[in-house]
Design a protein around this nucleic acid. Sequence first.
DNA 1: TCTGGGGTCCTAGGACCC
DNA 2: TCTGGGGTCCTAGGACCC
Length: 423
Amino acid sequence: MIFALVDCNNFYASCETLFQPKLQGRPVVVLSNNDGCVVARSAEAKALGIPMGEPWHKLKALARLHGIVPLSSNYALYGDMSARVMRLLSTFSPVQDVYSVDECFLDLTGAQPSPLECARTIRYEVKRQIGLPVCVGLGPTKTLAKLANHVAKKRPQYEGVFSWHGLPTAEIAALMTSFPVNEVWGVGSRLTARLNAIGISTVRDLQQAHPATIRKQFNVCLERTVRELNGELCFGLMTSPTERQQIFSSRSFGQLISDLSPLEESVAAYATRAAEKLRTQQLLTREVGVMLRTNPFRTDLPQYQRSVSIAIPPTDDTRLIAQAAIKLLRTIYRPGFAYQKTGILLTNLISIHNRQPDLFEDVVGLSRSQSLMTAVDSINRMMGRGTIKLLAEGTDQRWAMKAEKRSPRYTTRLDELPLATTG
DNA sequence: TCTGGGGTCCTAGGACCC
DNA sequence: TCTGGGGTCCTAGGACCC
């Protein structure tokens, strides 16, 4: 098997510069919701040493000094660009496993004239047809393909495409020794600390570790990773999209909130979002959960956090989900705290096609509910999200998050199309 | 003043069963 | 004094990913 991992370089930042060429060559950062943390950086911003996840307010001085351009995240734009990239990539292999918004695995086994040549074509065509830079890593397992992609990004001599295949053993060993163990897919900060403590600090160290010992001292996941580093297949491609197990919708507020009624509005709004996701994926939920919490960074304020859930008959009806959520919220709400976030969790999902009919169910009500939701979805799709919404979501939504620096939704909104200017 | 929003999988431990 | 053994299911929590 030869897997390819195709990953867009600095995806969000690249999408922004594609539509604003004047940003090219400048340090650009894309911020999370509420303009809170840095979630993407251009190459120039990375060169300034800005870490991923850094709170924006800590960077203001550095930003002034270097002319860093901050942008709010524009998920409509990124989602659309992602779909274009994935559609193009799907033409290069019969087997595509979309792993995240900006990366996917392809099975390039038997690609002509060779997997490596095919990978170079992929890189060239994505740039030519869509305008986004990607790197491609090739390997016999997903873990090695991920690592190869990292090599392709970090070592310019490979020009964005790297394969382990056919490399002399000594060269492979040298490369693996030159990368720290935390670059391995599945090794995060906690594991890195524990691995370092027992003398495993490079990728090469982990590759040479004894799988059974690793399993005993850590867990099966890490054991599989060690095996994959040695070319043994443990993680297969997800050829058909697996069914979601849960749907989450939550947001931090633009400001802290103490009163129950705006909290109820936010919960109703997130329930609406979650129910929309449910319907586009043709799923029903059988359990609704609500979470509520204060801002854990505000150590000067009293802290409170709770979540609760309840089983409900299978549904995708926004009204029923929102009703259940508001009821739950009232049971965990306590006055006297400054809340930062609420969220909705839908679990115990089933496919709409697998619903077990109930002998006593209200058949007429059910079909009315379905027609209503279909109508609401199509109106909101045509006229923009939120055209029709629950009154419970509130009309002014003072709790809504901040996104003050968002670029136009160039590719998905007619009124925000970029126009050529003359003269 | 200001710190994201989604997801996945695995494990340990408790409740409960016979 | 001495108090079974094996199984399933569920939940909370911890680790990871982008």
